[in-house]
Design a protein around this nucleic acid. Structure first.
Length: 336
DNA sequence: CTAGGGTA
DNA sequence: TACCCTAGG
């Protein structure tokens, strides 16, 4: 998934409340896949209504965003559009891996190994058009804006952040930094202990932030260099050089530069074409950001009447939210 | 993932 | 109250 720059980037722990009043551009696909993979039953079956429609993503969107709004964040979801053609191999590979995981999931169920079943099931998550459309509809119901990117969502979010139309980009992946996003936040709302699967262990997970300029200064490189490092280690658009991780790539780029690295290593994809995706991505100005109040009636219609969520849980969540945000009226909300 | 109920 | 576990759809 994305680029692996973890080994050279430093993360600052933050509190969710430090994002109060901030416009947070959320990588929608990244978030939806997370919900689809984690919100599952013991044997790995996702949540579904009685007609067999998967509802894990709707559950995730609903509770996550009620929580974000309670903390006074202003989320805007940025959806992926058409992937660049260089992503085709990655997409194909992911599809194959999902089919493989699906087989292993079935086998684990037959063997009665629930832990393994759940682990494999998590790698099978697929988003279809209906799920994407319904996710957008639920965001509408919650009064949360969404933007349709022409191509990569992270590129669009980075563009909006550069223009200061949003304050930060939220994603688990680091790609938005390569697209020039000034600030990336990870683990939004995830706080406290989380169980490590298959092990009787817990890890503490906190929201964290990275400021692009600070990272570059600390590493003594330019954004262009960071992109070059990513290309050496591998991105969604090229396989990268075997045996070269972020730390080695950093050394190579700082010592010899990109040209020399291209001479030295055997690239299967034109590294300049990959570079161009990050330096000159497709973006749009065709969006409007405005936040409204959640519509309880419509939430009940979509989640309870259509997908059989508990009515009480929905009304509970929304009235708690109203308590937290009740002092604002519609006009002040728009200028949040 | 989060909510909510059970337990120390 | 703090933590743990499980259901949710």
């Amino acid at each position: 998934m994305g680029v692996n720059l973890r080994d050279i980037l430093e993360r600052d722990e933050i509190r969710l409340d430090s994002l109060a009043g901030k416009r947070v551009g959320v990588d929608a696909f990244n978030t939806l896949y997370q919900f689809l993979s984690t919100i599952r039953q013991k044997d790995g079956t996702p949540l579904m209504d009685s007609k067999g429609n998967v509802t894990s993503h709707l559950s995730g969107i609903f509770y996550r965003n009620v929580r974000l709004l309670e903390h006074k964040l202003l989320p805007v979801y940025v959806f992926d559009g058409e992937p660049p053609s260089l992503k085709e191999d990655t997409i194909k590979e992911r599809k194959e891996r999902k089919e493989e995981a699906r087989k292993k999931w079935r086998a684990a169920i037959v063997a009665g190994d629930l832990d393994r079943a759940k682990t494999y099931s998590q790698a099978t998550s697929q988003l279809d058009k209906k799920m994407i459309d319904e996710s957008k509809k639920l965001l509408d119901v919650l009064g949360i804006p969404h933007v349709q990117a022409p191509s990569e969502g992270e590129a669009q979010a980075a563009y909006m952040c550069k223009k200061s139309e949003i304050n930060v980009v939220a994603s688990q992946d680091y790609d938005s930094l390569l697209f020039g996003s000034p600030i990336l936040v990870r683990n939004i709302t995830i706080s406290g202990k989380r169980k490590v699967p298959r092990r009787n262990m817990y890890v503490r997970v906190h929201p964290e932030k990275m400021v692009l300029q600070e990272q570059l200064e600390r590493l003594g490189i330019s954004l262009e260099n960071l992109i070059e490092i990513a290309i050496l280690t591998g991105t969604d658009f090229n396989p990268g050089i075997k045996g070269v991780g972020a730390k080695t790539a950093l050394k190579v780029i700082k010592k010899d530069g990109f040209e020399a690295a291209i001479e030295k290593y055997d690239f299967q994809v034109d590294p300049y074409a990959v570079k161009k995706i990050f330096t000159n991505p497709e973006t749009t100005d065709d969006y409007k950001l405005s936040w409204g109040f959640p519509d309880e009636e419509k939430a009940i219609e979509l989640l309870h009447e259509k997908h059989e969520f508990s009515r009480e849980r929905i009304t509970n969540a929304l009235s708690k939210l109203e308590e937290a945000t009740g002092s604002r009226d519609q006009t002040s909300l728009d200028s949040w």
